[in-house]
Design a protein around this nucleic acid. Structure first.
Lengths: 190, 190
DNA sequence: ATTTTTGTTAACAAAATTGTTAAACAATTA
DNA sequence: TAATTGTTTAACAATTTTGTTAACAAAAAT
């Protein structure tokens, strides 16, 4: 693999998978098995590497949503597909969203944002329709999104803490997470 | 206020409220309006300050749970009370749990943990009972906890990101969060 | 009142982290 | 094969961050 890519992937591994948000350039380089100067060669500065990783994470997140949202299957199947896709991604990169939040908070971000993606608007319409049909609980459509994401992501993100507080083994915790797809469906559908 | 306390509170403010997890000792001192050396005087090192803050956060989290769990009111009222208490705390310290996770991940934590708190066991029993009574959906009792915490915390923690992605004003977002208590109750109770 | 203890500060030293440069090396092209 | 371009590295410089010290001030104790 070319080393520019390797550096990025390694950074993502440390940030998104290991949750090691304080990683230094040296640590990233070591983990990738490259000379630290290469980070400056390819990305100019630590901060630009972070920005690059940040941007790609947001893009990934969006395109992932879009792909599922635009799939032409009935609503419930769409949600099931989405849970499959997103929870798989969560197990690979549990801390991606946490990284994004930390970055947004630490830099005082220019929140210039492109319009709400058309995919989202499309999906919100679909949610509204399902509420009218009575397949899901009535509420502000965004709340349905909140609920769905919350139920998927939070237990995964908080695993280290909850394992501590509840004294659960890694295996037990994984079992619980695996069970959640059905539970989430039962929770959000009438 | 005595300055040792002030430093701790300021650190918490930066970490838990502002989500500024990269704060340096100088930045903490500046924010608190004290000389940086005082941090070393009272806490010896940056790392010990972090440890102290960490420990207190875990304690707070636990004692908060305990207080509500042991209150002698019917189950549903208990949950309502809990949502009130916990969501108020969340708005004050949205990133407390994120800080804990980041710390757990960055240090390779000695996961030596005191037994699961008796409060938790007590509460799990209560949840099991309610499942048998049919007031809440049947599942592994811990999953009920997961659901409850997820629905409360995740939309608050992810506010900066979701506001970006969904292009929502601060006001609109706050309204959505405020509406969630009823929504959560409707979601987790049969 | 003066000694002792505690709290506070600035100046300094040490360590850690990042950024730059120049030279070595490899790959590609003329 | 010489020249050019792109890649990699080590050495160095600059910066940032942390930790220590010693002097000083305030408070408490004798």
């Amino acid at each position: 693999m070319n080393k520019e890519q390797l550096i990025k992937e390694t950074a993502k591994e440390l940030f998104f998978n290991k949750g090691y948000l304080h990683a230094t350039t040296q640590e990233i380089a070591d983990e990738a098995g490259v000379n630290r100067s290469l980070i400056n060669y390819y990305f100019r500065s630590r901060d630009l590497l972070f920005q690059t990783v940040y941007r790609e994470a947001v893009e990934d997140l969006k395109s992932q949503l879009d792909k599922v949202i635009y799939s032409l299957v009935p609503f419930r199947n769409k949600i099931e597909l989405f849970i499959d896709v997103y929870m798989k991604e969560l197990l690979k990169y549990p801390y991606r969203e946490s990284f994004l939040i930390t970055e947004i908070c630490s830099k005082n971000f220019a929140l210039k944002e492109k319009k709400k993606s058309t995919a989202l608007i499309h999906f919100m319409d679909e949610v509204t329709l399902e509420m009218e049909k009575g397949t899901i609980r009535k509420s502000e459509p965004i709340q349905f999104l909140f609920n769905l994401f919350s139920l998927m992501a939070f237990p995964v993100i908080m695993a280290p803490l909850y394992r501590k507080l509840l004294d659960l083994s890694k295996e037990k915790y994984n079992t619980l997470i695996a069970e959640r797809k059905q539970l989430i469906l039962a929770t959000i559908f009438n």
